[in-house]
Design a protein around this nucleic acid. Sequence first.
DNA 1: GCCGTTTTCGGCCCGACTGTTTTCAGTCG
Length: 577
Amino acid sequence: MKNIDISNIFNKMADLLEIKGENVFRIRAYRKAAFNIESLGKDISLLTQAELKDIPGIGGDLAGKIEEYLATGRLQAYEELIKDVPESLVTLLKVPGLGPKTVSLLYSRYNVKDIDALERLAREHELKKIPGIREKTETNILKGIEMLKRTSARYPIGKVLPVANDILGYLSGHAPVGKLSAAGSVRRWKETIGDIDILSTSEDPAAVMNAFTRMPDVKEILMKGPTKSTVVLEGGLQVDIRVVDEESYGAALAYFTGSKAHNIRLREIAVKGGLKLNEYGIFREKDSRKMGGAREEEIYEILKLQFVPPELREDTGEVEAASAHSLPHLLELKDIKGDLHVHSNWSDGNMELEDLAEVPIAKGYRYIAVTDHSKGLGVARGLHEERVIEQRKAIDAMNKKLRGFRLLAGIEINIKNDGGLDFDEEILKSFDIVVASVHSGFKQSKEQITKRILTAMENPFVSVIAHPSGRLIGEREAYEVDMEEVLQGASKTGTAIEINAYPLRLDLAEPYIRLAKSKGVSLAISTDSHNSGQFDNMVFGVSLARRGWLEKKDVLNTLDLNRLLIGIKKKRKTGKT
DNA sequence: GCCGTTTTCGGCCCGACTGTTTTCAGTCG
């Protein structure tokens, strides 16, 4: 999809315009358009001019630029821009502490075009000869360059959340905090996190700042003020804290949860209603009288909006829906009745079949599907036909012992490079549920991979397509696949699509979840557990589903066992649920 | 550059902290 290309080019243009000192609102318009294109969820190259202009933040001019880029693969305005301002300056903006004004100064007066040149000047102590730059700034720039070199930009939420919880635990034990919460993208359950934001109330903010900056894992204090501090942890993760009064906690929580785009929308609505919204509360414009702010809910009430769950706060339509009081009733963890993708030690899991049900039963589930790999995945000790029959006997024996809970006999069947499956129909029909997935041939063309998955979905015994894009966040890109086609096929054949809850997968990605929902595709949220601890990953899948606006009715494994089995049989009979 | 049940022109969110300065610009979120 060209969405990412166009989004990147608009973001880059925004950076360059900023260095040029252009109108800030024009710059914001480019960024907003870039963001909305990235989260569009459908292929921008298929839209008409009128449909382009329907995208929020895209008017006649940007629609024209998009069309030009799609038609020619180039953009005149962009090429003009980089004649004025070298493209490489964009990387300078990535140095923490270095903004457009300084970059512009460095370039226009000293011809600094990239990080190497900047670093050289700083090391030779030439930078501090520049008016407005002294010793401190020079050292900070060097530190910023170091930081940029060693830290990856964003971390998967699965790695960040435990750290955030540790910090919350530490602060409640070592600082005089009242209310305490993670905010920012952690609270919104974004799939990757840039930094951790912590918010607290306290009678003694200075003591909180001290405790925070003296936490055991702190490697460096970037900033320490009376109510706000920033540190870098061992390992490079940045953490911000902010302390406010009890009366401001709700407003501050809303503010620091973001997203920035969502906040801007709220403030615009406030301004239109003669109000002013900031992190301290919501105030009447004419006499500055405080109307609320202690509770987050108040902010939305006063703005006449439905309360927006943090997962939806991305300015992708939730403000409009909240205004019309038509937000979805989001799926909750307690709605989940089972897990449809679980491995035992019959293939590459480490759980005995006999122990498999223990954790799910404790969670209140009614069923899980045992979906070990099929023979094509040799590295994962995939099951051959004889082993399938053997395992089935073991599963049946287990089910005789279980009350109110069922182990479904399943398989994670390998989709071969030509779209065929590892087993023939005779074996396939013996399973309660068949989950199909791609584990090889990642380098195939988009057409081939798409065709492969479509072919697999045509099979009446395939109930779910697992980890549909194959991505591993920060480790492996998704294979090239036309996800819109796949979702269309899923809708046509009555096949469910998995939301894989493993934190490094989180696959299906969020824009496609919304698209799937709009096409009436059923989603299965599964942990792909290989050990008993991984059942807990369900919360990541549910949160991702919430970010995709899913409700209970959209999710296959919220069904009770009978309804689930009826659905599976229906596709087997008619090819469509 | 976008947008409009007050508007097709004139708006467009708001504050903390730092560093280099004597009152504030730049950066960040």
